[in-house]
Nucleic acid binder design. Structure first.
Length: 175
DNA sequence: GTTGAGCGTT
């Protein structure tokens, strides 16, 4: 998407990215502003996982594409909480599926292993192209590692394995 | 009310 960001504007889309926000602009504030252009399907301010503060950008989902278009044009450059905001059609459509950040399936020694990769066996949800976008950049093991180091060698393997039956995810899908 | 260029988790 670097290309898309550098060059042309992303294609019109129900999801708008709003950037340059004040740290104090809330989803409610955004909803107030953007619902002027039409019904919203949702608003998501992106927060820093550690501090809990806004990262200064958000995503606004419209229900109708023409409302999204109008909002894009009218709200782009508007001032909000003392900041001039940028509004674009979103490139990414949705957040990544949250993962514990560690591979919890069985190691796939023998090449053939169980069913195909990429889909995963156990009937877990299949990843579609939405979820794959930008995946390798963000869903790194490293991002989560800081929470888990200094613990026993494989705490999650044992903990989650025992629980996994009652949970909805399929271990082999985690990274 | 740190900022500040940014396309994503609670």
């Amino acid at each position: 998407y670097c290309d898309a960001l550098r060059h042309a504007n992303p294609d019109p889309n129900l999801c708008l990215g709003v950037f340059g926000l004040s740290l104090y602009t809330t989803e409610r504030d955004l909803r107030e502003v953007f619902s002027r252009y039409g019904p919203l399907a949702g608003v998501n301010v992106v927060y820093d996982q550690r501090t809990g503060r806004s990262r200064g950008f958000a995503f606004v989902y419209f229900e109708h594409i023409d409302d999204a278009k109008e909002a894009m044009e009218r709200a782009n450059g508007m001032e909000l909480d003392g900041r001039r905001i940028r509004v674009d059609y979103s490139i990414t459509k949705r957040p990544h599926t949250p993962t514990p950040g560690i591979y919890m399936g069985r190691p796939t020694h023998n090449g053939g292993g169980s069913s195909s990769s990429g889909g995963g066996g156990g009937g877990g949800r299949r990843r579609d192209s939405y979820y794959d976008r930008g995946y390798d950049r963000y869903d790194r093991y490293d991002e989560y590692d800081y929470r888990y180091r200094r613990r026993s060698p494989s705490p999650y393997y044992s903990r989650y394995r025992s629980r996994s039956r009652s949970r909805s995810y399929s271990p082999r899908e985690w990274i």
